[in-house]
Every structure is written in structure tokens, then in C-alpha cells.
Simulated assay, not measured.
Amino acid sequence: MESEAGEPSYGVLKLQSPAPSTGVAEAENTFSFSNPVYSPTATAPVPLVSPPPSVSEPSASPSAILRTPRPSYKVEDVVFESPERPTSWRNFKRGVLSRWAVARAIYPYMVSIGLVYFTTLSLYPGIASEVPSCRLGSWMPIVLMSAFNFFDFIGKIAAAWPYEWSRSQLLMASGVRLLLVPLMLLCAAPRHSPHIVGDVYPIMFSVVLGFTNGLFGSIPMIMAPSRVGREHREIAGNMMTLSYNGGLLSGSLVSYLLLSMLGEPADMCRIYPTPVLPTIPPVPTHNGNASLMLPAMH
């Protein structure tokens, strides 16, 4: 119900079938549930007079309909909750405790999705854009990012495959995926001469990174709400989003650290000048006699 101050309040609502009234004066003066002022569906009281003798039983039905008891409503008690600080603190504490209970039930999925996005943001797009290629040149980062996004899309579709992943499998897959960080890093470090040389290896690592990101980034988010009750599913989604954002933040910080360790870009594809080939000077003629000169080396 709405109070005069415009703030919502709460009350106890009672339902009662009123007893038949005996007259207009009693209906107006009696403070009871049968008073029409408390009933939104009741009509004005009508004097209960006996029908004329000539009126048959079916003709008396309108008066009988008016005398039919209807449920009446009356607010008996009103409970006010003042928005004070203790109430707000109590609600905050209740929310923290409920989220802690949900986190204890779904923590493997929270750790799994956090590790997945930590690995992804550590490499993509920071390290992936720094992998050099003498053959592709400036197209190398574009190829790596295109491969990542395409196979990430395929991994998200593959997450709909009806397979029941266990919590240990998800944690193991997310942990093994961390090996992609040093492998991709060795394709770009050191700047002047990377340890893993070639265009095939970074493209292959980018494909694996994208597919596993789509697959193991979607499965924990799908499975976690089903591990709690229906009333806690929204909280489970909230906690999964918190782990997701934690993985994004920590992975971005690690990516900045790795880029600072790489240092300034270096030109690893040096173009050496073409050596000058030996030439044979023209043979001069003196009085018809040709003199042969040896080729000069420059």
C-alpha cells in the first residue's frame, strides 16, 4: 500500500466473508468486514425486504444476488521499514553472505573462466601484434588476429556440443592453456632474433588460442548457474562475470609487462646490398693489333 508520504509500506491483508446484514443502519454504523467501505467489489447495502406475494421465486433473484456475501479486504496492521543505515548494512551483509555461499559452490568454474581470459589477454592482441614475419610483413598481425577471431567463433559453437565436462577437466584444460603464453612469446622474443622462427608456428598457436578461448570461455558460464538453486542463479551469473572481469584485468596487466620486456621493435629482416660483379673493360685496338687486358676486379 502507498502511504501519505508516498513511500511503499507493507501490511497484513485479511479476507473474510461477511455475515448477512439486517438493515441499513447496522451496515452503516458497524465497524466490520461486512461494511462496503472496506470492500472494493461490494455494492451499496440494500434493505432486505421480503418480495411481494405475487412475485415468484425466479423474480426475486436480483435481490438475492445483492445479498450474496462477497469477500472484503481490510488492512489490519502496517509494518514500516525505515531506510536507516542499520537496515542498509544488514542488506549488504546478507548479499555478501549469499554471494560467498554461491562462490563456494561454483568456484571451479570461476577459476576456470578466470584462467581462460587471463591467458587470452596476456597474448591477444599485445604479443600477437608483435610477432615479426619477413614474408608477410605488416600482414602478419592481421593474419594472427583473423585466425584467432575465426576459431574463437568456432569454439563458441562447439560449446553447444552435448558433452558433460567435469570440473577437473575444465580446470586442467584452463591450466594447460597457460603453456601458450611462453610459446607465443618465443615467437617474438628476442626482437632481433626470435627463438621460434617461421610463419606457421605463430599462426598455429593463434588458432589454438582462439578455439580454446571460445570453447572453455563459454562452457563454465553455461554450467555454473545449473549447479545452484533457481533462486541463486542470478547471483551465480554475477560471480562468473566477476571472475571473467578479473581474468581480463590481470591478463591485460601481464600483457603490458611482457611488452615492456620485449623492448623497442628491431628490424630483423635486414636487406643487404647486392655485391658488384666483376666487369670486363673494352679491348682497345692500336694499329689493328688487339691487346688483351685482364678483367679488373672492383
Rank of each mutant, 00 (worst) to 15 (best):
V96H: 01
L248M: 14
L179N: 03
S218T: 08
A173G: 04
S98F: 04
D267V: 11
A296Y: 05
L215E: 01
P58T: 14
V46T: 15
L123K: 01
P20H: 08
E130M: 08
V283G: 01
L13R: 05
L123D: 00
A60P: 03
L262M: 14
R233C: 00
Y10R: 08
S63F: 11
T120R: 07
M221R: 03
M172D: 14
L294D: 11
M140R: 02
M184P: 02
R94I: 13
S226W: 01
P225G: 06
L186S: 06
I154W: 10
R135M: 08
Y201K: 01
I196T: 00
E76S: 06
S54M: 11
G214T: 04
L15R: 02
M172Y: 14
N29P: 04
D199C: 10
R191V: 01
Y272A: 11
S226A: 03
P281N: 13
P141F: 01
K74V: 14
M172G: 10
A147S: 13
H192G: 05
R227H: 01
P273M: 03
L15Y: 04
P20S: 13
S122I: 09
P51E: 14
A64G: 09
S218Q: 00
K93M: 03
L292I: 15
V197D: 03
R270F: 03
N149E: 15
G263V: 02
L249H: 08
T68H: 10
R230K: 07
S193P: 02
N149S: 12
K93C: 06
V143M: 06
S88I: 15
V254C: 11
I196Q: 01
W139N: 09
C134D: 04
L115N: 00
E76P: 00
I65Q: 09
R167A: 12
I142P: 08
T274I: 10
P108R: 05
M293R: 09
S255P: 05
V116A: 13
V200H: 05
Y38F: 09
A27V: 12
I235M: 15
I196G: 01
P265A: 09
P18H: 03
N91A: 08
S174N: 06
A101V: 03
N287R: 06
L257R: 04
P194H: 05
M172H: 13
N91P: 00
G217P: 04
F148Q: 12
P53Y: 12
S17P: 05
V131M: 02
P220W: 02
I271Y: 08
P71H: 14
M268V: 11
L179E: 02
F118W: 07
R104N: 14
L178F: 06
S9W: 11
Y201P: 02
G246N: 12
N35Y: 06
P53A: 15
S206K: 07
S82R: 10
R70H: 14
H232L: 08
S133F: 00
S226R: 03
V12F: 13
M184S: 06
P202G: 10
R167S: 13
S9V: 14
P45G: 07
V24S: 11
V276T: 14
V208T: 10
R177D: 01
M221C: 06
G126R: 00
Y163R: 13
V116E: 05
A290Q: 12
Y272S: 07
